[in-house]
Write a protein that binds this DNA or RNA. Sequence first.
DNA 1: GATCTTGCAGCAACCGGTTGCAAAAAGTAT
DNA 2: ATACTTTTTGCAACCGGTTGCTGCAAGATC
Lengths: 323, 323
Amino acid sequence: MAVTIRDVARVSGVHVSTVSRAFSAPHLVNPETRVRVLAVADDLGYRPNRAARALTTGRTHNLGLIVADIANPFFPPLIKAAQAQARLRDYHVFVADTDEDPKVEEELIQTLTKQVDGVLLCSPRLTNRTIERLRQEVPFVLVNRRVKGMATVLMDVGRGARLAVEHLTGLGHRRLALVTGPSGSWTSKEMQEAAAAMSEVDVAFLGPNPPTEQGGRAAAAEVIASGATGVLAYNDLVAIGLIEGLAERGVHVPGDISVIGVDDIVAGRLGRPKLTTIAMPTATAGRIAVDMLLQSVDSEVATGVTMLETALIIRESTGEAHS
Amino acid sequence: MAVTIRDVARVSGVHVSTVSRAFSAPHLVNPETRVRVLAVADDLGYRPNRAARALTTGRTHNLGLIVADIANPFFPPLIKAAQAQARLRDYHVFVADTDEDPKVEEELIQTLTKQVDGVLLCSPRLTNRTIERLRQEVPFVLVNRRVKGMATVLMDVGRGARLAVEHLTGLGHRRLALVTGPSGSWTSKEMQEAAAAMSEVDVAFLGPNPPTEQGGRAAAAEVIASGATGVLAYNDLVAIGLIEGLAERGVHVPGDISVIGVDDIVAGRLGRPKLTTIAMPTATAGRIAVDMLLQSVDSEVATGVTMLETALIIRESTGEAHS
DNA sequence: GATCTTGCAGCAACCGGTTGCAAAAAGTAT
DNA sequence: ATACTTTTTGCAACCGGTTGCTGCAAGATC
């Protein structure tokens, strides 16, 4: 049915091994033979079967990309960049969504390991222990999660949080709140630690919350109760939900409370008010993560930490504190 | 290194074929033997190698999902749903992005066909001819594109466009414009035809345009020049860009011009003004498309057209015509 | 008791490539 | 012309499963 290496061999009058080598070890075959074989292959429309190749080489030329929620606008640019970068290197990528569920995440990794050469774990919710166990089975690169000894791409959200807090205090805010994310989130913890380390300000930690608009809206009452006038939200979706929730309760942003988000998603730029936010270099992260992964697939060593810069983008959701 | 079917066979004292059958044809093996084998397999941490299985069965248990632009908010919900549905059926999905380029799209399909049992083509930009040629190599399901005889999931954007036009004329608008999308887009053509069929109104067709915010912003001047007071944009991103572009030129929405988008992306709900739009059931489309695809993989027949309903959601970007 | 089913397990070929080894061919040195 | 390299090609085993066929034993039928 499909044309195989044997068809090509027969038509071009050489042994299958020669055809194989014409593709995967060109220097081992006479240039003339090679062009002839390739011509025949092209003629017949031959395309190597990757599954068969994987069987002997142990390389599938596939990668796995696991994210918590594809529909969360933080991820698509990362997915897009990762997938494009992989394609440059002749790799395909499986994309899987865990629905923020660590159980699903682990299962997914398990079933994927046999089919991929490496896995990109983005913002995983698994415990460090589980990650360390799973790493035995397949090379990993983590994005936005730090586990010692593992290859990692981080975005400096700690610095972002500090900039955000400074921005708020600079506007005169004295009581701050941090609307945190899911409990397994490294980003969330990082933000907390950064904020907590700034001893001169008083910041309340409210959470954990689901990293969604609903999560933000639901946190509105708590924020009001905390008495904070400056808020840093886990991400833009939460910030947007929070602003809506506050509005429903008659609290105005930035008039009464200033809100800062994280991620710089498109919706934030268009919202009312336009969101002040910490921009995350997600596309860059995706690209670099793929490169690190492929490198560690080849070299067997999977280490190194890359830290990417974040930036505070000041728009309209933050303003001077009153009184 | 990894544990194979032979390891399991050796330890449990049976032949490899028995182990194989214990997994893939349970009724052909004695229940007692089966539980013993499965126990050993579990013990050893055996996981079948899908590539090896694919080699003999011809089924990879993988699907390909090709979209024009992962970062376009229209797609992520579809990708998420498709991926989840596939997982239910024990399939994994490759996600690939064509960057709106038909060449890339074709290449992608070519390299993917050998590794997947079927391909989901979302809003393809290829010609019908090319699609019909490629279909020989792998089963397809098309989303938002009609090619005769092929399995398809459509969203009734034609009806959506009619509702939109009626909404605009109902508000008193007499001169309308349609800001069309990319030239290969079925959706765009569908909208055009629906609008053109409504003979009682005067509608100008402006395009093609890239389906992005930039595309919309760039179309602003043309829209103004057309004299239209009611505009239907190819999608929400275009609509948002258009509104920005109009604002830059001192034209107010909905005060001076009414604008309707398509897709109902999150950003539209948050924008200023909130976007009147035609909602597309993308998640449902993803789910159904996967089911159709798997069905056609099994049955060898890949036909049937599913048409999903759209809905006009009226928000703040449309209003009464003046004068 | 002989014959016929039926259920279960083993054998071995096969899927489509890759690769170590050996043979053949071509090129070089003596 | 002979011996020695080096290049090029063929052979065959192998990767990890699947599956048609055969063989065996136990139960059913007469």
